[in-house]
Design a protein around this nucleic acid. Structure first.
Lengths: 191, 191
DNA sequence: ACATACTTTGACGAGTGTGTCAAACAAGTC
DNA sequence: GACTTGTTTGACACACTCGTCAAAGTATGT
């Protein structure tokens, strides 16, 4: 390679992720990312073409990490505990930072300035992935026998619940309340 | 009154609501509302001071109507049916329009440009109101005896679920899926 | 008819946004 | 040392944003 990239791409995407996460796609300007990363706006446009493409690049890494963490939390042998760990992880993730950062994928899903098809596809892939992990975890013979509804349906309910919890976090800013609600749902699914 | 308002306030707030609902608080400009209502920007500023105050005025009407509808849907004597009607109403509301408009309160809750305290208070009032209606409806002796978890917890789970459904609507744009998920939850709560 | 009190109107200031581009630059290759 | 190829840089064009304000307009009360 002859004319090679001068800036540290990992670090730049990391900073970009933080900004997108905190402010959301629509409210984040390329200048915000330039300032946060120390890379000039022009270089960002040269390297990533436009804001949407840069975002997709950032989101790719986010989704991968997130799914990895989810898989880890669900690994607990006890189904109840696995689900509690799962909710614990998502709640901790969204209530991290001051002010709390919330959930990147939910912010993006709701953002009217992020309605491009590429973004929606990326969102679907992440949620599909989470749903698959959940479904697989609660499809064991043991879990199946204890569930009040079929695992496929329970997985959908659980994944939908995580999205709802994100919204409630924004409104009430009370992690304990979120955990209690999550525990209530688990109790209803696995009495 | 001497110098009285020239424009039809009802109609103007109605149009403003439509725009805010479709585009979200942050992405809506005063010019958007001026264009949609036919009232000049200057007049809007004169009448409502600023964008946030105008929004709060709009949201007030929205919340009132919404709570009224919720109360009506929950009135069904059969608890299962009442909850199904409740979800049916929220899902129909968010999937109305082309493109579907989603949920105004959820869009506002997630919007990083709508983080003012007055807005958060208005959001809490609406959600608190919905929760109260739900809780009261499922606190009857009959409902209580059938619920898998206490009515207070069930109300929180239900309200959180509606917020999650809104997010899933944005991602998958599939009303049937939303109804199925809602039905699954009701099944888990009232087996 | 005239004063009053408010609304309407359109221009203004100041800031922000996206994306483009030509020129300067840097790092390998011949 | 010259060439190639991509990157960096800062300025540019253009559009949009919020909120303000002076001047013109208008319906009511006297």
């Amino acid at each position: 390679m002859v004319g090679q990239r001068q800036f540290d791409e990992r670090r730049t995407l990391e900073r970009a992720r933080e900004v997108f996460w905190l402010k959301g796609y629509g409210a984040t300007s390329m200048q915000d990312i330039a300032t946060a990363s120390g890379v000039l706006r022009g270089s960002l446009y040269n390297a990533y073409r436009d804001k949407e493409t840069l975002f997709l690049r950032v989101f790719e890494g986010y989704a991968e990490e997130f799914l990895g963490e989810v898989a880890r939390t669900l690994a607990h042998p006890d189904v109840d505990q696995a689900l509690r760990d799962f909710f614990d992880f998502t709640i901790t993730s969204m209530t991290t930072g001051v002010p709390t950062r919330g959930c990147l994928s939910t912010k993006t899903a709701i953002d009217t300035k992020a309605e491009g098809e590429r973004i929606r596809v990326a969102l679907r892939e992440l949620i599909d992935g989470m749903e698959r992990l959940l479904r697989e975890r609660i499809s064991t013979e043991e879990a199946r026998s204890r569930l009040t509804i079929p695992p496929e349906e329970a997985a959908r309910v659980l994944i939908t619940m995580t999205r709802g919890i994100v919204v409630m976090e924004r409104v009430y800013q009370d992690p304990e309340r979120l955990r209690a609600t999550a525990a209530s749902l688990v109790e209803a699914l696995l009495p």
